[in-house]
Amino acid sequence: MKRNLITLITGAVLIVIFALLLFVFQVRQSEVAVVTTFGKITRVADPGAHLKWPWPIQRVYKFDERTQNFQDKFSENLTADSITLLTSVYVGWRISDPSEFLNSFKDGSVFSAQSQIESMLTSAKSAVVGNHPLADFVNADPNQLEFDQIQAQIEQALQSELHTNSYGIQIEFLGIQQLGLPESVTQAVFDRMKSERNILISRAQNEGQAEAIKIRANADRQANETLADAQAEATRIEGEGVAEAAKTLPVFQKDPGLANFLLSIDAIKQALNQRSTLFFDDRIPPFDLFHGALTNVPGH
């Protein structure tokens, strides 16, 4: 009997707990709840514990009241200068009116809302991207960059679209998350970057060769100049020597015949210094001593 009583009490407590869970709902600090009675919105509940009739009489739809963010697809659009540009945008949005939000999306589906925002965003983004040249997105001169303006324009377009149709959604912020080029264009950019590098490579190589040639030529020029200067100096010195030597010539003028005779002797001495072949007959001294020693003249 006692055991059955415990069992009954346990069962009853459990039923009460489970029933309580059906009649009570909690809304977190970060949430807002919409209560519907037989499908009609009857109240909006703030954070805290609240009572309700169990389903299917009343239903509670809880929504995250915080800013939610998502990133759209990395999609391709044409810029004003007909260049295909891939862009991805992140969006922060918040449920500003839970009742309208619930009416707008089945069961207040956040996923549906996000899809709706994304489709509008795609349209707004295409329009804004098409109004700007690529140089407004990417520019080595930061003053010509219109990044912030483009973001503001997309946000404004999205905001006005949402306001027109009263989705109960507020766009909190929007930013360009990623920029890119299609694969084929990326490859072309790579090719171009390579070609730029090739220019630099060619420049370096040829400049090196040119510089080397210049250095060598300059060195040759300097060497030739040095040698020319030296030769000129040598000639000048030789001339000085000759001039100095010429001062002795009056001595030779005392007996020019002897002087010339002696110069001839010196000249012969120097001329015969190298290997040479001489032919003499018996009239040239000292071979004139042989004169008449041999003859083949008949009858002589």
Binding site: I265, I268, N273, R275, T277, D281, P286, F290, L294, V297
Partner: peptide, 21 residues
């Protein structure tokens, strides 16, 4: 002077003496 010069100057030269008449 001539004979002093001659041997020294022609020492390295090949010499041919033509004695035919």
């Amino acid at each position: 002077a001539y004979f002093h010069m001659f041997p020294a100057a022609t020492a390295n030269a090949r010499k041919y003496i033509l004695l035919v008449t």
